[in-house]
Design a binder for these strands. Structure first.
Length: 823
DNA sequence: GCAAGGTC
């Protein structure tokens, strides 16, 4: 009998795959562990008996980037990036998702895609199709798309019975966005980074980045800074009459609130004072309701985390993710504030009823009958963030507990009664002017019992009778002054981003942390975002060249264009071309006008020439270059007006006053940060423009030698001397013995001019400095380890170069290239 | 060294 056909089902993340498999198999499945789990079970599919396999990807399978030649900042004009090819590569090569999918798809007759039901999910569908080797319109092996709005049994079964085709238009819309974001972001970033870092020494930012999301985000913060800076305070005056009733002193509120004219205010004060009697004109009582919250989505969680818990969005998300993977809360990235109708509130409440903190309240709530949450919006992604498992404070870290505590309080709040109170307003007339006072009496605390910070404050008023007349104690003329708005808080910024469609629930924290990391804004007390001089100058610059560049509309424009693709109303290639054409024009104009922006930088920052201290000698003019220590650390030659970047995150010193034989630049030694810090010497010129050809092969050689990283015990394995006592370890090995078998290495004659040594015994290769005219062995021996000395003849510096003399130096070049490739 | 979007 033929084996049953196989159906491969793929979800967006492992947890969803597990839920789907559990629901469809009734929990009777066999789970294979691997890089990602595969759940197997038997069942029926379209009337046939089949074997199911459910697995997942981990987000996007591929990410998009430029091919290698375009990665070189110095060799590529950013303008060329707009028309450059792009390529997709595995987003996380170490996870081997592609291999996993293609292996699992082998022998399967059906592919069912269970990716999230949004554009990104649709795009991942096609990444999965590509990885599995399925084709969309193939008769023999069919591809289906499951559309589901929640991972409940009902929705999963419904989706299984209503399988559709994946939507290529929506997927292409994502491809379109990826290409536009990549090209625009990278082109502007490279241009302005190179331009400004080549001129100023104290920008203190590794990279002066530009992005259609991060730049408008910065724009919001700077906009607020401008409002604060240009704010002109205005004086105002208000009347504050006081009365005494039943022993209470009461201040009455003026109907006119405040006046900006002192004389007029004084006139009213006189009128009121002359009357001296407050007459009660109206007493009204109204039942008011403060509604329980709707479900909690990511953006609202982040706002509360920042404003009430003092946790930044990035940290809050990390904690939320950890709570999620440990099973304490539901998936923390969601836009929805509405629960699906099938949601199991009883289950969640049953779990929380066990909790020592809220248990009593929840038990009473269940006994009295809990409420369904208020209706919110259903974005069709995931249910609101909900506690899943009871936890106590000692089970979680401090911040995680506080976040969990809030998620629980919010959830219990959503199913609690509304808060009800009576609002009493007493209106008065004094000298023809109207005043009032307001009292609150809470009748039902409702959800404010678990969310006490939202409680309505009890404010009792003495009993008044309509028509009653009360003598006035005094009438103060209050003088105040309008105050500027405060800096944006993270919470304000999140609201603005959400309102303007900048970023998504998952990316909003990333954009905010990006502008902090790039030193465009700083988070100050109260989680306020204060722009730095760099952030302010950048936005000012965009405003004077092309304000569009920092306005939120730039994102809406892209979104609107790709929506045409998603709806199938426009061809994606033409949209990419059209949008890139416009950005290319903007880019060209920006480059042309950059002097205007530069004028702002000039007024704010110090030129490279005035920055830093004299450090090491330039090989071209033989004068001292300046060492700029602010990030990115670099050397600047005042005479040649050249910048030489250095390896980052470490310390740099002069190296024995040696100079590089290739270019006469003084050599430096770099020590990496950390307790097990490695050091290596380098030539600043070679580091910025490696002198060798065939660096890729060189890199390969480094790998064959042993370690491929500059980690512990690593260095230059190919050039390490195997001789245990040899202190000339950096190069001697290349000429004395093979690192694999200790056999003698010979010059490989076939490969010239790619100089390398070949071991006849084990067939391995050791590469030598390239660019040499001639390399030959000599009769001399290394005084340190007795190995044969090699002579390298460099035409370009017109003299012979003996390995033993400069052997350590030769290794520096190799190291420079290696570092360059590696970082 | 670069964007924004998934997810871990």
């Amino acid at each position: 009998m033929a084996p049953p056909p196989k159906v491969l089902m793929v979800a967006e993340k492992p947890s969803i795959a597990l839920s789907i498999a559990t629901e469809l198999s009734g929990g009777h499945m066999y789970t294979r562990k691997g890089s990602t789990e595969v759940h197997e079970f038997d069942g029926s599919f379209r009337g046939f008996h089949v074997q199911y396999k459910v697995t997942s990807v981990i987000g996007h399978v591929f990410s998009v980037d430029f091919p290698a030649p375009y990665q070189d900042w110095t060799a590529t004009d950013p303008l060329d990036l707009f028309q450059a090819p792009i390529r997709k590569a595995e987003a996380n090569p170490k996870a081997h998702i592609c291999r996993h999918l293609s292996q699992e798809a082998r022998g399967c007759g059906y592919l069912v895609l269970w990716l999230d039901c949004d554009r990104e999910g649709e795009n991942i569908c096609f990444e999965v199709i590509e990885s599995t080797g399925f084709h969309v319109n193939e008769e023999r092996r069919r591809v289906y798309r499951a559309r589901f709005s929640s991972v409940t049994q009902k929705d999963i079964l419904l989706a299984m019975h209503n399988l559709v085709e994946p939507n290529r238009h929506e997927a292409l819309a994502v491809d379109t966005r990826q290409e536009i974001d990549l090209k625009v972001g990278v082109a502007f970033t490279r241009f302005q980074t190179s331009y400004f870092q080549g001129r100023y020494g104290n920008l203190d930012s590794r990279v002066i980045s530009y992005g259609p999301c991060q730049t408008p985000t910065l724009g919001f913060c700077v906009q607020r800074y401008f409002q604060i800076n240009t704010f002109k305070p205005e004086k105002f005056w208000a009347l504050h009459p006081f009365i005494i009733k039943s022993g209470y002193e009461l201040q009455l509120e003026w109907e006119r609130k405040k006046l900006f004219d002192k004389d007029v205010a004084i006139m009213f004060q006189k009128l009121v004072m002359e009357d001296r009697i407050a007459k009660v004109t109206e007493i009204s009582e109204k039942q008011d309701i403060k509604s329980r919250p709707s479900g909690l989505n990511t953006v609202n969680l982040l706002k509360v985390a920042s404003s009430a818990l003092g946790l930044g969005p990035q940290v809050a998300m990390q904690n939320a993710e950890r709570l999620y993977t440990r099973g304490f809360i539901s998936y923390p990235r969601t836009e929805s504030t509405s629960y699906p109708s099938s949601f199991d509130f009883k289950g969640v409440l049953g779990e929380l009823a066990k909790n020592p903190t809220w248990g009593n309240y929840v038990q009473r709530l269940v006994a009295d009958g809990y409420h369904k949450p208020r209706l919110g919006t259903d974005a069709g992604d995931h249910p609101p963030i909900t506690p899943m498992r009871s936890a106590t404070e000692d089970m979680l870290e401090h911040d995680a507990w506080r976040l969990y505590e809030y998620v629980c309080q919010h959830f219990i709040g959503t199913v609690s009664p509304d808060c009800k109170y009576v609002r009493t307003m007493v209106e008065f007339s004094i000298g023809g002017e109207s005043f009032h006072c307001v009292g609150h009496h809470v009748t039902v605390k409702g959800f404010t019992t678990v969310m006490p910070w939202l409680a309505v404050h009890e404010k009792n008023l003495p009993q008044f009778i309509k028509g009653e007349k009360i003598e006035i104690l005094k009438v103060d003329l209050f003088e105040g002054s309008t105050t500027p708005p405060d800096f944006l808080t993270e919470s304000d910024l999140i609201s603005l981003m959400e309102k303007n469609g900048i970023g998504t629930d998952a990316s909003i924290p990333v954009h905010i942390s990006n502008i902090c990391e790039r030193n465009f804004v700083q988070v100050q007390a109260g989680r306020k975002l204060v722009p730095t001089a760099l952030g302010i100058t950048l936005i000012r610059g965009y405003q004077c060249i092309d304000p569009d560049l920092c306005l939120p509309d730039i994102r809406s424009f892209i979104e609107q264009q790709i929506t045409l693709v998603a709806k199938g109303q426009a061809d994606h290639i033409r949209v990419v071309q059209h949008v890139l054409q416009q950005f290319m024009q903007k880019y060209c104009y920006f480059v042309k006008q950059i002097e205007n922006m530069n004028a702002l930088f000039e007024a704010q920052f110090s030129p490279l020439a005035d920055s830093g201290r004299n450090f090491s000698k330039c090989g071209k003019c033989l004068r001292y270059m300046k060492y700029i220590s602010t990030q990115p650390s670099r050397l600047y030659c005042n005479t040649c007006e050249e910048v030489y970047y250095l390896p980052q995150k470490g310390t740099i010193k002069l190296y024995k006053e040696l100079t590089c034989p290739l270019d006469n630049f003084e050599l430096l030694i770099f020590s990496m940060a950390g307790p097990e810090a490695k050091s290596f010497p380098l030539c600043p010129y070679c580091y910025n423009s490696p002198p060798f050809e065939g660096i890729d092969t060189l890199f390969g050689a480094v790998k064959t030698g042993g370690s491929s990283k500059l980690g512990k015990g690593a260095g230059m394995p190919c050039f390490l001397c195997p001789h245990p006592t040899c202190r000339h370890s950096m190069i001697a090995q290349g000429v004395c013995a093979c690192p694999e078998c200790s056999g003698t290495l010979v010059l490989d004659p076939v490969s010239a001019p790619k100089w390398r040594l070949y071991c006849n015994t084990c067939n391995c290769l050791v590469f030598l400095p390239q660019g040499a005219h001639r390399i030959s062995t000599t009769r001399d021996r290394c005084p340190e380890c007795d190995s044969t000395i090699i002579e390298v003849d460099f035409n370009r510096i017109q003299h012979h170069w003996r390995m033993e003399l400069h052997c350590t130096v030769a290794a520096f070049f190799v190291m420079s290239c290696f570092i360059r490739l590696w970082r």
